[in-house]
């Protein structure tokens, strides 16, 4: 195992950030930690990169203990924090040189690792890092995290607040790094990014809801799921929630995703119910659940 986390707990005063988290990441894997703000993603990541100590439990990265062996371990981990943490008053090239020097290497020595990414910002290497656009800052931060040739790359919400085009490009970069043999742990609040990982852990309120491949996570959804729409989506949501047999009703893109307490509920019954209430262009069909459906279902099970 490249990363091994055993029953970690972490509190800040009264607030329990992690309530017994265990997981394992295999060598060469692209592993996603998926959950909303406040789920505990950053606390777990900061423990793994040796910036925070757990209250209870232990973790190893490449068989080094995150507390006892933190000095050795830091040479083996590349870390890209959620906030831009480079020196804004140094140039692009100065930042790179700085991080290379701190780890006792040079840009030239590991240029092959960052080449793909760094080449895109190299034309601006004289520019102050603080003056780069969002996308370029991100590429510089990733280059700096890679310049000491780490075995493991840990990224805390690299795509948060980033538009869909840049997000796609960023994931393509991660895939290329994975092919070079780097193990990657990445956190994200975007559920749709789960499908780009080999395996994912869904995390909420400091607890892991499930860990598996994205395919198996979606297969675990235990209800018949229906996609329903009509011309008036606002009233459609309200009317379906008022139905005594409806279990969950949520907007999902252009349809509502609906589950029923009665698994034998038929499409024509649902159609008739809505038509009788005055809905027009009613459409009802079966649909396959996504990661987000599973997340919402597991979340509500945990709350009850």
């Amino acid at each position: 195992m490249m990363i091994s986390v055993g029953n970690i707990e972490k509190s800040y005063g009264e607030v329990k950030a992690l309530r017994g988290v265990s997981l394992e990441v295999k060598e060469g894997e692209l592993f996603g930690l998926i959950g909303p703000d406040g789920a505990g993603k950053t606390s777990l990541i900061r423990i793994l990169v040796t910036l925070l100590k757990p209250d209870v439990g232990s973790a190893t990265v490449n068989e080094l203990d995150v507390v006892k062996d933190f000095r050795k371990l830091r040479n083996q981990i590349g870390y890209m924090p959620g906030r831009f943490s480079l020196y804004p008053d140094l140039t692009v090239e100065e930042n790179m040189t700085f991080f290379a020097t701190v780890f006792g290497t040079t840009i030239e020595e590991n240029y092959h690792l960052v080449k793909d990414i760094y080449q895109q910002i190299e034309p601006f290497k004289e520019r102050l890092a603080g003056r780069l656009s969002g996308g370029m800052k991100q590429k510089l931060a990733l280059s700096c995290a890679l310049i000491h040739a780490p075995k493991v790359l840990v990224l805390d919400e690299p795509t948060t607040g980033v538009d869909a085009v840049s997000r796609k490009e960023f994931w393509e970069m991660l895939k290329r790094l994975q092919k070079m043999g780097i193990t990657i742990l990445v956190s994200t609040p975007y559920m749709d990014e789960a499908n780009l990982c080999d395996r994912v852990a869904l995390i909420q309120d400091g607890k892991i809801l499930t860990i598996d491949t994205p395919e198996k996570v979606t297969q675990s959804f235990g209800h018949k799921l229906w996609a329903i729409r009509s011309d008036n989506m606002y009233l459609c949501i309200r009317h379906l929630r008022e139905h005594s047999e409806s279990d969950s009703v949520f907007a999902f893109g252009e349809y509502l995703h609906v589950t029923w307490k009665d698994q034998d509920m038929q499409a024509d019954e649902m159609e008739k119910y809505l038509s009788d209430l005055g809905h027009t262009n009613v459409e009802v069909k079966r649909t396959e659940p996504g990661i987000e459906d599973v997340f919402m279902d597991l979340m509500q099970k945990h709350d009850n």
């Binding site: 909303p36 909420q204 606002y234 949520f250 979340m299």
Partner: peptide, 24 residues
Amino acid sequence: DEPSGGVDPVTRRRFWDLIYEAAH
């Protein structure tokens, strides 16, 4: 302006319920 970033999927949808209601 990007009102729903960061929250869990259930909370995000509860928020959109409010948006639908306001538009209605």
